[in-house]
Amino acid sequence: MKSHVFLYQLINSISSILAVNDDYTAHHQNNVAVISRMIAQELGLSAFEVEGIRIAAQIHDIGKSAIPNELLTKSGKLNTEEFALIKTHASRAEEVLVGIDFPWPVLDMVLQHHERMDGSGYPKGLVGEQICLGARILAVADLADSMINPRPYRGALGLQAVLEELNTYSQLYDTEVCNTFRKIVSDGGSRLFAAIEIVS
């Protein structure tokens, strides 16, 4: 029991690293954790698996702690070099997490959350089931919150935009995960919006 308490204290400390200078990412990680948990539960995963996915989601952007804050909060469009630097956040997470002995494949989930089913993602260009299920869940949850809520460089796009994105670019995301997300928001999003924080 003590080891679990220590683990959660560690996760909270890691999460707070970004909150100091990047309040957006802190809120985003919390929301992605909630959405990921909802998807994992709806998929019928075990309580142990669900918790591991939630933990990974809670710190999935920890690699951004190595990215200059002025890029993370930039209101205008990123240029090619700036976007390339932002994209390194997935692999930079390894520097923070590699020494932590999680009881779940947290590092894999964090490293792979920007991989895409057709191999067009990063950092390794993994394809299909080469991407762990947790990362495939994080990918959809990450997309959902980033479009539902405003980002530093644009306003909120809304739930309908998320659904259109999943339909238009279905080759990028796990089909079962997408269908599960659609089921969760089939009430118009009431259940989802009651669970996450909407930034005004």
Rank of each mutant, 00 (worst) to 15 (best):
K2V: 10
S3A: 10
V5E: 14
V5K: 10
L7W: 08
L7F: 12
Q9I: 01
I11D: 00
S15T: 06
S16R: 10
L18R: 07
T25D: 05
T25Y: 04
H28E: 01
A33K: 00
A33N: 00
I35C: 15
M38V: 09
M38E: 13
M38N: 11
Q41E: 08
A56W: 06
H60F: 13
I62A: 12
G63W: 03
G63I: 03
K64N: 10
S65I: 00
E70Y: 15
G76R: 15
N79Q: 12
T80R: 11
E81T: 07
L85A: 14
H89E: 04
R92N: 14
R92K: 13
A93Q: 04
A93Y: 01
A93E: 03
E95K: 06
V96G: 08
L97G: 12
I100V: 14
D101F: 15
P105Q: 02
V110M: 01
L111N: 05
Q112R: 08
H113M: 01
H114A: 07
H114C: 04
E115C: 01
R116S: 11
M117H: 11
Y122M: 07
Y122Q: 09
P123D: 03
Q130P: 06
Q130D: 12
C132Y: 02
C132L: 06
G134Q: 00
R136T: 00
I137C: 00
I137E: 00
N149I: 13
P150M: 04
R151S: 04
G158Y: 09
L159F: 10
L159R: 10
E164I: 15
L166D: 03
N167S: 13
Q171K: 15
Q171L: 14
I184P: 12
D187S: 14
G189L: 10
R191T: 14
R191A: 12
L192P: 13
L192W: 10
I196K: 06
I198Y: 03
